[in-house]
């Protein structure tokens, strides 16, 4: 890297850190200053599961049968055991087995 890059690197790091911290702290900062109406409470109650759905759906749509079956098995394990680690292991074992079997 060039001589001036030390300063530029430091500047980039400081600004990127500020950018990530603002997103982490900003949501709570704003919400703690808004009066908690019933509608806002209902909104916040539905955000967590909605974000999980929003993460899961695109991570599965362009995948194949191995991932679909593994996703179903993970869900079944979660319903039956209510245990996160058992569900995770079920999903991982399913996906590795199915990938070696199918492909």
């Amino acid at each position: 890297m060039l001589e001036s890059s030390g300063f530029i690197f430091a500047a980039a790091i400081v600004l990127m850190t500020a950018a990530t911290y603002i997103t982490r702290a900003g949501g709570l900062f704003i919400i703690s200053r808004i009066a908690p109406t019933q509608r806002l409470q209902a909104f916040l109650n539905h955000v967590p599961a909605s974000i999980l759905v929003a993460i899961i759906v695109p991570s599965l749509v362009d995948k194949g049968p191995a991932e679909f079956i593994a996703a179903g098995s993970t869900a079944a394990a979660a319903i039956l055991t209510r245990n996160l680690i058992i569900s995770l292991l079920t999903g991982l074992i399913c996906v590795s087995l199915l990938r070696t079997l199918i492909f």
């Binding site: 991570s59 599965l60 593994a70 979660a78 996160l84 995770l88 999903g91």
Partner: peptide, 12 residues
């Protein structure tokens, strides 16, 4: 697939 599996279980 680990993160997808975790998020599925949490959603359940």
């Amino acid at each position: 697939f680990a993160f997808t599996a975790v998020f599925i279980a949490l959603l359940i």
